[in-house]
Design a protein around this nucleic acid. Structure first.
Length: 406
RNA sequence: GCGUCGGUCGUAUAGCGGCAAUUACACGAGACUGUAAAUCUCGCGACCAUUGGUCUCCGGGGGUUCGAGUCCCUCCCGACGCA
C-alpha cells in the first residue's frame, strides 16, 4: 500500500531544527514551511477558492466537529468529499475536533484561548471544575467526549473512531487524531491524565484509520500534547514517534512564553523525515519561532478573524482600520504590498466599508491578511533555501515591532 | 384663539420625588493565535482622586420640598384636534 503523502526535505536551516521541504499530497504539493488557510465550515470565511489561490494559499484546513454538525459528514461524502463540495482542488486537512474539546470545554465562557497571557492563579482551574454560570458543552470521559451542539443543544458522543470515520467521509488529504487540547492553566496532575488519554486516543485513531481503505489516500497525523511541562512534552513526542503516523501535529494552548520551548522539545524528538504541523499558531513572531524550531505547517484563524474585525497586518505592525485617523487616509493598507486589496484600494475605502458594515470589508481585508501571513511564511521558506533566514527574520521583526505612529 | 400630548447626553428612547440619569445606535479605544467570532470588552458632562470627591446637568424663568428630570405657575418651541 502506497503512502498517501511524501515529505522531502530540501534544505535545513543550519544550527536550528528548521527546514524547507516539499509535501506531496493526492491533491498537489505543498512547499513548506507553509501556512494553511482555516476554512472551518468548508469555507474560508468571506473568500472564494479563486481568491485563496490568488493569495497564494496552498492548503485549507476544515473542521470535523463543525462539519459533522452542519451539514453532516454524510452530506459532504455524498457531494464527493470536501474538495468537490467546496470547490477547492488543492490539498486539504481536517482538524479532529480535539480543539473543540478545549474551546467548548475548559475554555467555554472563559477568557482563555490558544495563547493565554493571563497567568492569574485564579484561572488555575482544572478541567474538572464546573462553573454553574457557564456550564461547558463538551465533557470528557476516558472513551470520548460528549458535545452538546452549540447550534441546537443536541448531544453527540465523539470517540476517536467516530472522529476518524467523520474525517474519512470528509475526505481531506491529511487528517488528525482525536486529542484533548488542554488549557495552559491545568496543573501537572491533570496534564498527566489528559496526556495519557490523548495517547490512548492516538493509538485508537491510528488503528481505526489503518483498518480502513481510506488510509491509502488520507494521511493521519498524531498530535503531541503535554501542556507546558518538559517531561510530558518529551514523553508525548516519544510515544507518538513510536507509532506509525504519517506526520505530527503539535497541539495544546500555551502561555505566550511557553510555545517556543514546547515546540523545540518536541521537534528534537519527532522523526525528522515526517512533516510537523503546529496547530493554531499564526502571529508573525510565533511563525518565525516555529519555523526555526522545525515546524513545517501552520494554520491559524488570526489573519481571517482579525481581518473581519478590522485589524490588518502590515510590515510595520497591525492597524485597526476602525480608528478615526484612517477615515481620510488615502494610502494603501500596506505600502508596497502586492495583494489585490493593496493594489486597488485605500485605507479610507476599507475604513468606510467597515463603518458601513459592508460585506466587502471582510473580503478585501481577508485577502490582504491571508496574503500577508501566507507570504510571510513563504518568504521564510525562500530565506531558508537561499541561506538568508537570520537576516530576513531580523529585518522583518525589527520593522514589524517598531512602534510607529501613523 | 381654544384644547390635548410632547420637549432628557450626537440621534432615538427610559424615567412618574433621592439621578450624573435607562436602553439602542452613532462615536472613541482595546482585544482577537487547531473559528460558539462580519465578534467581544471598555469608554462616552467636566475637573481632581486610591476606594472616592467636587462642580455643572434633563427647552427658558420662577415656585413647592430636606431633596425636583420628575409636582405647581409661567413663557418659548413642536405635533395633533377643534375653530
Amino acid at each position: 500500500m502506497s503512502n498517501p503523502i511524501t515529505f522531502t526535505i530540501q534544505k535545513k536551516l543550519d544550527g536550528t531544527l528548521g527546514r524547507a521541504g516539499l509535501l506531496e499530497t493526492p491533491h498537489g504539493t505543498i512547499e513548506t514551511p507553509a501556512f494553511a488557510a482555516v476554512g472551518t465550515k468548508a469555507t474560508v470565511k468571506a473568500m472564494t477558492p479563486e481568491m485563496l489561490t490568488g493569495v497564494g494559499a496552498q492548503v485549507v484546513l476544515a473542521n470535523t466537529y463543525h462539519l459533522f454538525l452542519q451539514p453532516g459528514d454524510e452530506i459532504v461524502a455524498r457531494a464527493g468529499g470536501l474538495h468537490s463540495f467546496m470547490n477547492w482542488q488543492g490539498p486539504m486537512m481536517t482538524d479532529s475536533g480535539g480543539f473543540q474539546v478545549f474551546s467548548l470545554g475548559a475554555a467555554y465562557g472563559k477568557d482563555i484561548s490558544k495563547i493565554t497571557k493571563e497567568t492569574d492563579p485564579q484561572l488555575l482551574l482544572s478541567e474538572a471544575t464546573n462553573d454553574p454560570d457557564n456550564p461547558k458543552i463538551a465533557t470528557i470521559d476516558s472513551d470520548g467526549v460528549t458535545f452538546k451542539s452549540h447550534l441546537d443543544g443536541t448531544s453527540y458522543y465523539i470517540t476517536p473512531e467516530k472522529s476518524i470515520d467523520i474525517q474519512h467521509n470528509l475526505g481531506a488529504d491529511i487528517i488528525f487524531a482525536f486529542d484533548e487540547c488542554t488549557s495552559p492553566m491545568e496543573p501537572i496532575h491533570y496534564q498527566r491524565e489528559a496526556l495519557d488519554r490523548t495517547h490512548r486516543w492516538a493509538k485508537r485513531s491510528l488503528a481505526h484509520h489503518k483498518s480502513k481503505e481510506n488510509s491509502s489516500r488520507q494521511a493521519l497525523f498524531g498530535i503531541v500534547q503535554g501542556g507546558r511541562f518538559e517531561n510530558l512534552r518529551k514523553e508525548s513526542a516519544e510515544v507518538l514517534r513510536d507509532m506509525d503516523f504519517d506526520g505530527y501535529g503539535i497541539g495544546g494552548s500555551f502561555a505566550k512564553e511557553d510555545m517556543t520551548t514546547a515546540v523545540a522539545w518536541v521537534n528534537a524528538i519527532l522523526p525528522e523525515d515526517k512533516p510537523r504541523h503546529l496547530l493554531g499558531i499564526g502571529e508573525p513572531e510565533d511563525l518565525f519561532a516555529g519555523v526555526e524550531n522545525g515546524v513545517d505547517l501552520f494554520d491559524c484563524v488570526a489573519p481571517t478573524r482579525a481581518a473581519r474585525n478590522g485589524t490588518l497586518y502590515t510590515k510595520i505592525g497591525k492597524l485597526n482600520l476602525m480608528n478615526a485617523k484612517f477615515v481620510d487616509d488615502f494610502t494603501a493598507i500596506d505600502e508596497g504590498c502586492a495583494c489585490y486589496t493593496c493594489k486597488n484600494y485605500t485605507k479610507a475605502y476599507l475604513s468606510h466599508l467597515f463603518r458601513a458594515k459592508e460585506m466587502l470589508a471582510g473580503t478585501l481585508s481577508s485577502i490582504h491578511n491571508l496574503y500577508f501571513i501566507i507570504n510571510l511564511v513563504h518568504s521564510m521558506r525562500l530565506a531558508i533555501l537561499d541561506g538568508g533566514f537570520a537576516e530576513f527574520k531580523k529585518a522583518f521583526l525589527d520593522k514589524y515591532n517598531e512602534k510607529t505612529t501613523i
